[in-house]
């Protein structure tokens, strides 16, 4: 049984058909890529999977359950984690607080009562977990900096760390490397691979950086004008002339 199965998802915005009967499967522990030209509908698909948007047609199954009527936070609790193309960081909070909050939310600890009996302050263990993720992402120096004053690339890493800390079964990343320099992109690829290998997290990656995509993903979906153009093992798909014409451009 696939971890995630999206069945013929369609979504229109007025006259614009952003998604037309898209199917997509992710197996447990798999590293899947999703590419496509600008405006192909990748982010829209993510939003449909996560419940930010309601698809006009189609259904989403995750771990065998139909997600259609679930609000976003419930889906997240089931094990869907994601990052955003347009940052959704908690402005005003420090990097460390981002990680602590994510950790808290996953453990479902606390609540009003817990706070009142004094369990609210972060324990040393929680702090250590936050710091471990900070180190994994190379943010150690910036842990106590408010996110608003981070450069774009670092802010993306914070989002990634936040999602990783919720220990999702499936991590959905929307252009995580945009704004990162080469070193950090490769570093991120390494981190993602280790997250996948060590925690068995499946990853669905939307990315325009083909170098990174071909490095990390084993299977690739190509979306164009809201329709699934191709799917298969990454190297073959990327080499396919149709894909090259639609997305990659000239064979460089």
């Amino acid at each position: 049984m696939p971890l995630l199965a999206a069945e013929s998802i369609s979504k229109h915005f007025g006259g614009i058909a952003a998604l037309v009967g898209v199917d997509l499967n992710v197996e447990p522990g798999e590293f899947v890529g999703l590419v496509g030209p600008n405006g192909a509908g990748k982010t829209t698909l993510f939003n449909c999977l996560l419940g930010i948007l309601k698809p006009n047609r189609g259904r989403v199954f995750f771990r065998g359950r139909d997600l259609s009527r679930m609000p976003m936070h419930a889906r997240a609790r089931l094990g869907l984690g994601r990052t955003f193309q347009r940052l959704e960081v908690f402005s005003g909070m420090t990097v460390r607080d981002h990680f602590l909050v994510a950790d808290r939310s996953r453990r479902k600890k606390g609540g009003l009562f817990g706070d009142l009996v004094g369990q609210g302050t972060p324990t040393r263990r929680e702090d250590a977990r936050a710091e471990a993720v900070g180190e994994l992402l190379g943010l150690t120096e910036l842990l106590d900096v408010p996110v608003d004053s981070l450069s774009l690339g670092h802010a993306r890493l914070v989002e990634l760390g936040r999602a990783v800390l919720t220990e999702p079964k499936l991590l959905m990343l929307d252009e995580p490397s945009s704004g990162l320099d080469r070193v950090e992109t490769m570093e991120m690829a390494r981190v993602l691979q280790s997250v996948q290998a060590e925690r068995g997290t499946a990853i669905l990656l939307v990315e325009h950086d083909l170098e990174m995509v071909s490095l990390v993903t084993s299977r690739l979906y190509v979306l164009e004008f809201g329709e699934m153009l191709a799917t298969g093992p990454t190297p073959q798909v990327l080499a396919h002339p149709v894909v090259r014409r639609a997305y990659v451009g000239d064979v460089a």
Binding site: P71, H73, V89, F90, V101, R106, G110, D115, G120, E159
Partner: peptide, 25 residues
């Protein structure tokens, strides 16, 4: 107590980005 506890932090997060908060459950 509430402010320094989980509830306070969650409220902080929601204020920063409601979508982001929901995305971590």
């Amino acid at each position: 107590l509430v402010r320094r506890g989980t509830t306070g932090r969650f409220l902080d997060a929601i204020r920063g980005s409601e979508t982001g908060a929901a995305s971590i459950g």
